[in-house]
Design a protein around this nucleic acid. Structure first.
Length: 285
DNA sequence: CAAGTTACCTGACGGC
DNA sequence: TGCCGTCAGGTAACTT
């Protein structure tokens, strides 16, 4: 479910509920996520420490406590974090629950268990954090992501531009929905090789991507099936989808029927007229 | 080494 | 009603 905008919305929504709260107990369902959960370690490292910060990097949430420990949380496809009154009934697929000092609980719910919760111990959390995030590409909304950077990374890459945009080692936080939307608005076919885009096209991709991500964050993210923010409210950016999930419908721009095709193993939606497969070799480069 | 494929897991949906 | 196949927002290990 969650791509950069959804994780950002959750992060912002949780801030006021979590900051300065002391963790008084930790519950685990016993089922593992994508990586095993060490419940004993979660208890020993976090108990009676206070949450000092929460921020997003890529699709990860980084939560730090005053004893120097940290959690790196990923929501996978169906993960979510929410605040609930302490003691109320757990829901199906609630896998980790942190009781906080103000009589509330932070709960991690994840139907498919594709998410992950990594615990960084106080002694090594700083270097572990750096190492973990070093492998991930720059934030598309930050200044250190530029047209020049994307062009340079795309040199000699025969891979489709869509897979390239979704590669977390290249760019942080871009998933299937926003890759589809961005390429539609930029007028670029998802299967065009990354190395074949002109400077002008890369500029358009980055501009459109940033605009789309910001718009989605402002809308509270996209709700497909079950996404909700920390207060249990869905986002409404899905109302603004131009191409994602529109198979068989007329293109909003030109009326051509929207196509669906697997690209890099992921469902890809595009308009044949608005996103022509360009074999531009030298003219625009 | 780059790029494509598969596995991880549950649930919703459509066809029969 | 139910059984079966297909599909789903992500990531990383594996294969080619």
């Amino acid at each position: 479910m969650p791509e950069l905008p959804e994780v950002e919305v959750i992060c912002q929504g949780l801030q006021s509920h979590l900051l300065n709260q002391t963790i008084s107990s930790v519950y685990c369902s016993g089922k593992d996520l994508r990586i095993p959960i060490d419940c004993v370690a979660l208890q020993t490292e976090l108990l009676n420490s206070a949450i000092t910060s929460l921020r997003r990097r890529a699709k990860y949430l980084l939560l730090k406590t005053d004893n120097g420990a940290a959690l790196i949380i990923h929501l996978g496809m169906t993960g979510n974090l929410g605040i609930f009154p302490a003691g109320t009934a757990l829901k199906k697929h609630d896998h980790v629950c942190w009781t906080l000092g103000n009589n509330t609980e932070l709960r991690y719910n994840d139907t498919r268990r594709f998410g992950s919760i990594r615990l960084l111990k106080p002694e090594t959390s700083s270097s572990d954090e750096k190492a973990f995030f070093a492998a991930i590409g720059p934030e598309p909304l930050s200044r250190n992501c530029s047209t020049a950077y994307l062009m340079q990374r795309a040199v000699n890459r025969k891979q489709s531009v869509k897979s390239f945009l979704m590669d977390s080692h290249v760019l942080a936080g871009v998933g299937n929905i926003y890759a589809n939307e961005t390429l539609f608005k930029a007028g670029i076919h998802p299967e065009q090789p990354a190395s074949s885009l002109s400077a002008k096209q890369w500029e358009r991709v980055l501009t459109v991507l940033r605009k789309t991500l910001k718009h989605a964050i402002a809308c509270g993210g996209s709700t497909i099936s079950d996404f909700v923010n920390a207060s249990g409210e869905g986002g409404y950016f899905q109302m603004n989808f131009k191409i994602y999930g529109k198979t068989g419908e007329p293109c909003e721009t030109c009326g051509e029927i929207v196509q669906k095709k697997q690209v890099g193993g992921r469902a890809s939606f595009y308009c044949r007229k608005c996103q022509p497969i360009s074999t531009n070799t030298c003219d625009e480069r």
